[in-house]
Amino acid sequence: MMKQTTHIKVENLTVKYQFHTAIKDVTFEIQKGDFVGVIGENGSGKTTLIKALLGALDISSGNITFMDDLKVGYLPQHIMRAEGLFPATAEEVALMGLLEEKRFPKRFTKNDKAKVKRIFHELGIMHLLKKRIGNLSGGQQQRVMLARALISDPDVLILDEPTSALDSVIEQTFLDLLKSLNEEKETTIILITHDLATVGEYIDHVIYLNQVLEYDGPFDEFCKNTKHSPYIHLHAKSACGHEMMKKEMKQ
């Protein structure tokens, strides 16, 4: 598959907080249909980068350009307000994904509710529609959040460590679902992860951050580069082994 349409362009991005610089002079491009893994140690600036992409924080310098009015879906790292007593149904939470496209006064129609039903059906969580969000398990809540992110039919889906609350079986199903979205709808996926062992086989583009951009390119090249050996040894040994094996088999 040729991936030539640039979706997101980040140029010389720097984000400073009150007492430290989170990311410095980061430049990269993401193409339509990319499945990107944003990796790095804790505190390397991964979440800051994603929040900057989403416009959730003020950047200190540089530019972020989204081409062609792209719709962006977002799945946050922590599932918010999921305590048992929070009075909201999965349907009410998923409808929030349509807020941005609603004009004043924001009201949801029968058509919007039908959209929620369709997404829930596709994700196999129709039985959760009227359940209270706080009564759902971590995996079920994560799927509802994914429904919220997908309901606006996004061109780009940004996920911040989405599998951290999932057990291994659900994790696999979740990643397969992302892959099928990526392949069938050409949705660009940007996934923050520290767990390359699990997601390594799904991603094709790696952005490796350590406050500065250490690497931006194909996953197999990342694995080959000895400069990244310490990170690979700690976090990506099996993923890189698998990737290299895949490459050899292709050859």
């Binding site: 989403l54 416009g55 959730a56 977002y74 946050p76 918010m80 307000r81 929070f86 909201a88 009410e92 939470v93 929030m96 807020l99 941005e100 609603k102 006064p105 924001k106 009201r107 949801f108 919220r148």
Partner: peptide, 22 residues
């Protein structure tokens, strides 16, 4: 009544609300 959806988003997930232009 007018800002019901915005207020719901604010209390459920303030960051998500902000990202969605609220």
């Amino acid at each position: 009544l007018v800002f019901y959806q915005e207020l719901f988003a604010l209390v459920y997930d303030e960051e998500f609300a902000r990202i969605n232009g609220i």
